[in-house]
Structure formats: C-alpha cells, structure tokens
Amino acid sequence: MKAEKLPIVRFAPRGADSFYETVTGRVAAYFKNNHISPYANTAMWVKTFFMLLLYVAPYILMVTGKAAGNYWLYFTLWFLMGWGMVGIGTSVMHDANHGTYSPNKKVNSLIGHILEIVGGYSVTWKIQHNLLHHTYTNIAGLDDDISSIKLLRFSPRQPWYWFHRYQYLYAWFFYMNMTLFWMTAKDYLQVVRYKQHDLLVKQRVSLGQALFRITMYKLFYYAYILVLPILFSGMPWYLVLAGFLLMHFTAGLFLSCVFQPSHIMETSAFAAPVESEGKSRMEDSWAVHELGNTTNFARNNRILTWFIGGLNFQIEHHLFTGICHVHYPKIAPIVKSTTQEFGLPYYEQETFMKALLLHAKMLKLLGKQ
C-alpha cells in the first residue's frame, strides 16, 4: 500500500511576547506559586473510580441475572452503563491518552487502554484526536472530527448536497449512533486510511499489527458485552441486543452533544490554508486559530463540568492539553483575561442548552447552499 502523506500546513509564527507565550507563562506561574501539580489530584482519582464503577457495577448485576424478569431494572442497568461509557470517555480515557494523569508515561498508557475495554482502539483515537483534531481544528480535509459521512456537513468548506438542508433535523440520529459505529467499523476504516497517509509510523505499529489488535479487542469486547449477557443474564438474546443498543444510543447522543457545540458553531472561523511560495500556510498562529474555532459552555455548571471531564472548558483544553481537566476552572479566568488583553476572541455560552441550540442553528446554516 503506497503511502500518500497529508499536506503539510504551517501556522504563522507566534512571535515574541505573543498571546500563547504570555498565557502559558501565566498558567505555569499559577501552578508554581500555588505549589500545585498540573497532573491528576486526589479528586481526579476518586472520580476515576466512580466512573469505572458506573460502568462495571450495572454490568455485573445484569450479567449475573439480578435483573432477570424485571424489565425496568434490566434496561435501567444498560442505561446506566451508557452513562458509564460517557464518564469513562470524557473523564478517564481522554485525560490518560493526553498524558495528564501522571508524569509517568506508563501510568497514562495503562489507564488509556481502558478505551480498548469499552470497544475502541487507542492508536487510532490518538491519531484522530491528539494529532489531527488538536493540530488542525476545523480545517477541512485535515481535522478528522469534521470529516464525517456525506450526509453531514460540518464545515462551509465541505461539499454541499440538497439533503443537507435537513441535517439539523436528522443529525441527532447519527449522533446517537456515534459510539456504535466506532465500536464496529470506524477503527478498521481509520487504520487503513491512516496507513495510506503514513500516520501509523509514529505510533510504532504496522497495518497488519493494528488490524490484528483491533480484531482481538473487538472480539473481547463483544464477548463480554453480548455473549456473556446472552448466556447468563436470564434474558432472551433480543432483549440483550436491545439493551446493548440502548447503552450505545445513550452514550453516542450525549457525547456528540458535548463535542459538537465546542467547534461547530456560527462563531467558528473555519479558516483555510492559503498557498504561498508553494507552501500551505495559515494566516493565524496555532493558538489564535484555536481560539477562533473553539467555544466554551456552562462554565458555572459544576455538576456538568465534573461529569464530562471539563470538556465544556474546551478553550483551556485545546491550549493546555497536558494539564488535567480538574484544573480548568481555575486557569480559565487567566486564559480569558489574557485573550481580552490581546484583543482576541473568547467564545462561550452560559448554558449547555443554549450551546446545543446554537449548534443546531449552525447545522441549519451549513445546510444552506
């Protein structure tokens, strides 16, 4: 398979005394002056235990037949597992694969492999999220998070089709199926595409190794999530399948509703590279580009912030991927005041629902030719 590397896009130099240089210095001073580690604290480890328990405990009750014959309890357990998937994805796996639990890489790697336990593959996730999304946010053709199926248009720079005018209505169905698609076909499709773009090299894995590992992980996942419940839950196979779908629909819809309002908004710039001297360049520096394509929401909602791993502080997350999310509420005022000082945008919405409504509005705008 011949490798075809992705085009190299360079951002404008940040310059001396730049916004990024200033804000990183101020955030570093916050941790130093307060004698705080930017990694996980005790509260983070307690949360980790809770999120794992939210997924594992309902599973154990269900697979041991404790809910046999009680349909309400049975489907409630699957529903809770869906929320457990959300918690693991946003508050555990996400931080671990960004390396923010500990300065010890082995600790981060070990916790990051929880993704394989819930049906994913950490190698493709790191390429899609850490490399492509965080580097090229909202740049069509490079940010894999906006490179979706043809039925969904997430950028004004993507092709338009007549059916996109209805996407603000039907997008939610595809959001609901996000994790189900991920746990079945997405990892296979991605790893082949990433091999074609020569992106597996830095992950130190060959295509053959990746395909083998994905297959083994998927077999393990479907063995415990479907086969064991069919054998031991005391419920017929079709109810096991229904519970499995309920879990994924719950997790997929909510995760999408957390991710999408962070970037697919009317305020987002969706800037494209310009050709200069045979090279593709962005007019803004990387940090300024991130500010122009990212939105925070519900910063004062402590429960939501706790449960979704601070992903409502998306600006802070994009600028400081190496800092554990439990610190975002404290560094957010530093970031916001620095953006104001430099005359840069700091987009935020007061509530989660308002952010969702504005995202739906953006889907409708993107549906217009």
Score class of each variant (00 low, 15 high):
residue 178 M to S: 09
residue 104 N to P: 06
residue 201 V to F: 15
residue 135 T to E: 12
residue 101 Y to P: 05
residue 157 R to G: 09
residue 76 T to M: 14
residue 109 S to W: 09
residue 127 I to V: 03
residue 113 H to Q: 14
residue 129 H to T: 12
residue 92 V to T: 02
residue 92 V to E: 01
residue 119 G to V: 07
residue 107 V to Y: 05
residue 118 V to Y: 03
residue 77 L to T: 12
residue 146 I to M: 05
residue 142 L to T: 01
residue 106 K to T: 04
residue 86 V to E: 02
residue 105 K to A: 09
residue 79 F to D: 05
residue 184 T to G: 03
residue 109 S to P: 09
residue 99 G to H: 01
residue 154 F to K: 13
residue 186 K to V: 14
residue 140 A to N: 09
residue 167 Q to H: 10
residue 118 V to E: 00
residue 89 G to M: 01
residue 177 N to A: 15
residue 158 Q to P: 10
residue 168 Y to A: 15
residue 128 Q to I: 03
residue 114 I to S: 06
residue 134 H to N: 14
residue 106 K to R: 06
residue 194 Y to G: 05
residue 151 L to M: 12
residue 84 G to P: 08
residue 195 K to E: 10
residue 105 K to Q: 13
residue 159 P to M: 08
residue 112 G to I: 11
residue 91 S to W: 00
residue 146 I to K: 02
residue 126 K to W: 04
residue 197 H to S: 10
residue 171 A to S: 05
residue 164 H to G: 09
residue 165 R to Q: 04
residue 138 N to H: 00
residue 162 W to F: 13
residue 149 I to C: 09
residue 137 T to R: 04
residue 108 N to R: 15
residue 81 M to K: 14
residue 155 S to M: 12
residue 181 F to L: 08
residue 79 F to I: 03
residue 83 W to H: 14
residue 120 G to Q: 01
residue 134 H to D: 11
residue 205 V to E: 10
residue 166 Y to L: 11
residue 161 Y to E: 11
residue 119 G to S: 05
residue 131 L to V: 10
residue 202 K to I: 08
residue 107 V to R: 03
residue 120 G to W: 01
residue 154 F to L: 15
residue 192 V to K: 15
residue 96 A to L: 04
residue 169 L to V: 15
residue 202 K to H: 11
residue 135 T to Q: 11
residue 206 S to E: 08
residue 100 T to M: 06
residue 134 H to S: 12
residue 204 R to F: 11
residue 148 S to T: 02
residue 161 Y to V: 09
residue 174 F to K: 01
residue 79 F to W: 07
residue 131 L to K: 14
residue 105 K to I: 12
residue 78 W to N: 15
residue 119 G to K: 01
residue 81 M to Y: 09
residue 116 E to M: 13
residue 85 M to S: 14
residue 89 G to D: 03
residue 167 Q to C: 13
residue 164 H to Y: 13
residue 91 S to V: 06
residue 198 D to G: 02
residue 191 V to E: 02
residue 91 S to C: 08
residue 138 N to C: 02
residue 96 A to F: 05
residue 207 L to T: 00
residue 134 H to T: 15
residue 112 G to C: 08
residue 177 N to I: 12
residue 208 G to R: 04
residue 158 Q to A: 13
residue 135 T to K: 11
residue 92 V to R: 00
residue 152 L to W: 00
residue 192 V to G: 10
residue 159 P to R: 13
residue 134 H to G: 13
residue 92 V to F: 01
residue 78 W to P: 15
residue 101 Y to T: 08
residue 169 L to Y: 09
residue 178 M to Q: 11
residue 126 K to D: 05
residue 207 L to F: 04
residue 181 F to W: 08
residue 122 S to H: 04
residue 196 Q to R: 09
residue 91 S to M: 05
residue 163 F to A: 11
residue 209 Q to W: 03
residue 132 L to I: 13
residue 129 H to K: 10
residue 169 L to N: 10
residue 160 W to F: 07
residue 155 S to F: 11
residue 203 Q to N: 11
residue 198 D to K: 04
residue 82 G to W: 07
residue 196 Q to W: 06
residue 83 W to E: 13
residue 84 G to I: 03
residue 111 I to H: 01
residue 96 A to Q: 01
residue 194 Y to Q: 04
residue 123 V to S: 07
residue 170 Y to Q: 03
residue 124 T to Q: 12
residue 103 P to H: 05
residue 84 G to R: 07
residue 171 A to P: 01
residue 198 D to T: 00
residue 148 S to G: 00
residue 176 M to I: 06
residue 194 Y to S: 00
